[in-house]
Write a protein that binds this DNA or RNA. Sequence first.
DNA 1: GTTGACTATGTTATCGATAACATATAGATC
DNA 2: GATCTATATGTTATCGATAACATAGTCAAC
Lengths: 345, 345
Amino acid sequence: MKPPKKTPTMSDVAREAGVSPMTVSRAFKSDAYVNEETRKAILAAADRLGYVMDSMASGLSSRKTGFVAVTIPSINNANFADTVRGLTEGLQAKGLQVLLGYTNYNQEEEERLVRQLLTRRPEAIVVTGGTHTGKCRAMLENAGIPVIETWDIPADPIDSVVGFSNADASAKIVAHLVETGRTRIAFLGGDASRDTRGFDRRRGFIREMESRGLDATRLVEAGPPPISMREGADALARLMSRWPDTEAVVCVSDLAAFGAMTECQRRGLAVPGTIAIAGFGAYEISDICVPPITSIDPHCYRIGLLAARRIIDLLSDGPDSETESHTLVEPGLLVRASTFSDCNP
Amino acid sequence: MKPPKKTPTMSDVAREAGVSPMTVSRAFKSDAYVNEETRKAILAAADRLGYVMDSMASGLSSRKTGFVAVTIPSINNANFADTVRGLTEGLQAKGLQVLLGYTNYNQEEEERLVRQLLTRRPEAIVVTGGTHTGKCRAMLENAGIPVIETWDIPADPIDSVVGFSNADASAKIVAHLVETGRTRIAFLGGDASRDTRGFDRRRGFIREMESRGLDATRLVEAGPPPISMREGADALARLMSRWPDTEAVVCVSDLAAFGAMTECQRRGLAVPGTIAIAGFGAYEISDICVPPITSIDPHCYRIGLLAARRIIDLLSDGPDSETESHTLVEPGLLVRASTFSDCNP
DNA sequence: GTTGACTATGTTATCGATAACATATAGATC
DNA sequence: GATCTATATGTTATCGATAACATAGTCAAC
């Protein structure tokens, strides 16, 4: 239909409006002196031409791309999605745009992804977790931009941290279960090797069980992360055939927990009467299912928001920082019917 | 610790390797003559310096940014996440990177987002849905890049389409419910104004009901999209208090459907005995919950993959296109226990 | 009337890479 | 040996914007 004319540039707008390209630039940035009438004329001219600023060129020149790179293990996960929402919304005010990538819970993928993201010259980078390959860590250290590690408490942080202890979260659940009268408690999680957060939760479970003198060997592996509801169900079946007298299960996530609970329903095991179930993540499912499932709320959105604040703080020139280099977000224990004790005399 | 030295450039690598910047460029692109030894030396030099290519500058010069912009209504939605996965994986082979943004089911937000994404000069753009504001549509038309509309069958497509008819999908469910003996059927969805796909599903419901001479006025609105499980539950409560003899509910999504089903459990309404429930989206929850919920599988991942193929096709120079301008992905009906009729004599 | 502060705009060089063109060497062909 | 071709590398201009600097007019204060 219409000729494939290439998109107009700032110079085209300048010509159309009868000013210099620099004035057009100023009109769009609105951070410098431009006569109000001139600005209006320029914006009108831009509108006529259908001009859309080229932020790639802008970024090259100003050395500010407006990108904040973010890596998450999976895009199909409500927890990480909430963190990304917090980031996006927190950064929007400063005109920063999230550049998202996901690692499939794989550190080699993360390394590849971080390299790809760094080629876009983001002004800061947010990664999930505190364990990386050597090369990945080196790239992050040498990128010369703020690096925020989230969802974890790294032993040796690269730069800033906004996270929580996955191990402590598990311990909190174990404490709750023991207090409500359970001692034969199992942990249902993914293969330990890939998902370090899941591994930490398992570690916290074992530590807390042992510190209470309880048997910490009831560990079921449900496969490589992410653990689906189905895998949670299958794992519960295996758990019950191996340790039929299990009184409670701590699951690596609410999704696994819900899957496990449906398996209980299918087997006629009363929850929490016969077996108590706890999850992790405060997914909506755990709140609405019958019975609702006890969970840990890691405050996903908040993590994103705090990471955004930290970035804005580090990127602003002011030497006074309002945020801490290391921010702990204390997870909350949500006690729900799936671990009530009144059915468990 | 270390001085804030800025990241090395291609010239730095060239100097380190004793060649010209152009040769370094060639070594990285690997699309032209470079002596194998020279290439190795260059890559080694780059590694020593911790050089990471600047694809912003590269894009400016070559006019290929390697971005494909993608807009989805919500990042916290497994369906759209699957489509994004399909896109990401389909585009990876050609070195194209997804630049993702979400609209919160809001067309004004979409307009703002599309403008923002276009400033990044993507090589193609994928949008969810076929309804846009006038300005948004104009921007997409004038961007001079392939535009793919997905998850819908637009009345007046901008360019390419990979989608399905949301209305037909609803009709398919209605047909199934009627065939299994239900006639007093309700539709549970969001406010009609914002979510056009949800609106189309409702429209399809009404059309099919009326074409069968059935009452199509049992419509419950659960609030602005996205409809949560909780809102689905609340809406079911309202539905049953207004039309207590309802035999089946068609829900705008599996999440709403599951929420509605939990409400039935709480009220002691047998599913499917007293009331049948159907959802949309083939979320994992609908497959694993008890009873599993009848749903429509829109083949989310496939939509993403086909969109990716179409883009690669349009971007490759070859005049021969393997893909169609309009691709229909026929949704599948997943009949599950929540609509079985054998409990409904 | 001169000075200075502020407003408004233009000019030039540059960001980091690549396209397009130019050059140079090695081996093959006549 | 002359010519050609394929390989390997360098040079120059340019992508579209902005930083930094320069210019020029207006108004108030002295």
